[in-house]
Amino acid sequence: MTRSAASVPTFPGSTILGQFARSLISLAKAFKDRREVRNLAEFDERMLKDIGLTRSDVTSALAEPIHHHPSWVLVRCVGRPAEAHKMTAAHKPRPVVPLASRV
């Protein structure tokens, strides 16, 4: 037995309601993320450094618009220092040690 697409009931505006529900869920998740990032703001500098963040990373994440997920900003911040360190290490000139000559 096969079902045709016509037998599935559709309601007018159901896509709009679905989009509205998804928007509400996304906003609720953003608020939850914001609350968790505010908890990170209570950490001291050493604790933030242990997880690869700085105070300015947390502050900038909380400065994002209210509907954005601040945890996504922090994920990008955690990956940044390792890449920056690799680049500076590759471009750092080697120290020149003068040779001592025997006279």
Rank of each mutant, 00 (worst) to 15 (best):
residue 55 R to S: 12
residue 58 V to C: 05
residue 81 P to D: 01
residue 25 I to Y: 09
residue 20 F to A: 14
residue 57 D to R: 00
residue 54 T to E: 15
residue 93 P to E: 07
residue 62 L to K: 11
residue 45 E to Y: 01
residue 33 D to Q: 09
residue 103 V to R: 14
residue 7 S to G: 13
residue 78 V to N: 00
residue 94 R to G: 09
residue 31 F to H: 12
residue 48 L to E: 08
residue 101 S to Q: 10
residue 24 L to S: 02
residue 7 S to Y: 07
residue 60 S to L: 05
residue 2 T to Q: 09
residue 45 E to Q: 11
residue 80 R to F: 02
residue 36 E to P: 00
residue 11 F to E: 06
residue 33 D to H: 15
residue 94 R to Q: 11
residue 1 M to V: 03
residue 48 L to I: 07
residue 70 P to M: 08
residue 41 A to P: 00
residue 103 V to A: 15
residue 103 V to W: 12
residue 18 G to N: 08
residue 20 F to K: 13
residue 52 G to F: 01
residue 51 I to D: 00
residue 30 A to G: 06
residue 51 I to Q: 03
residue 18 G to F: 08
residue 47 M to F: 02
residue 88 T to D: 05
residue 5 A to Q: 06
residue 69 H to M: 03
residue 71 S to D: 07
residue 49 K to N: 05
residue 53 L to V: 03
residue 37 V to I: 11
residue 77 C to I: 01
residue 20 F to I: 07
residue 36 E to S: 09
residue 71 S to K: 14
residue 81 P to S: 12
residue 30 A to Q: 06
residue 98 P to E: 10
residue 2 T to M: 07
residue 39 N to S: 12
residue 17 L to T: 04
residue 84 A to H: 08
residue 43 F to Y: 14
residue 58 V to M: 03
residue 79 G to A: 11
residue 68 H to C: 08
residue 55 R to D: 03
residue 39 N to Y: 01
residue 34 R to Y: 03
residue 42 E to L: 15
residue 85 H to N: 09
residue 78 V to I: 15
residue 47 M to K: 15
residue 73 V to A: 02
residue 20 F to C: 04
residue 1 M to Q: 10
residue 92 K to R: 15
residue 72 W to K: 15
residue 9 P to I: 11
residue 47 M to H: 13
residue 48 L to P: 08
residue 44 D to Q: 01
residue 13 G to L: 08
residue 60 S to W: 00
residue 18 G to D: 07
residue 98 P to M: 02
residue 97 V to M: 08
residue 36 E to A: 10
residue 98 P to T: 02
residue 64 E to C: 06
residue 81 P to C: 00
residue 35 R to A: 13
residue 6 A to W: 09
residue 27 L to V: 04
residue 72 W to G: 02
residue 99 L to A: 12
residue 60 S to D: 14
residue 82 A to T: 09
residue 39 N to D: 13
residue 29 K to S: 13
residue 67 H to G: 00
residue 35 R to W: 08
residue 89 A to S: 15
residue 42 E to S: 11
residue 83 E to R: 15
residue 90 A to F: 09
residue 33 D to I: 01
residue 34 R to E: 02
residue 102 R to W: 12
residue 6 A to G: 04
residue 77 C to D: 05
residue 74 L to A: 04
residue 33 D to K: 02
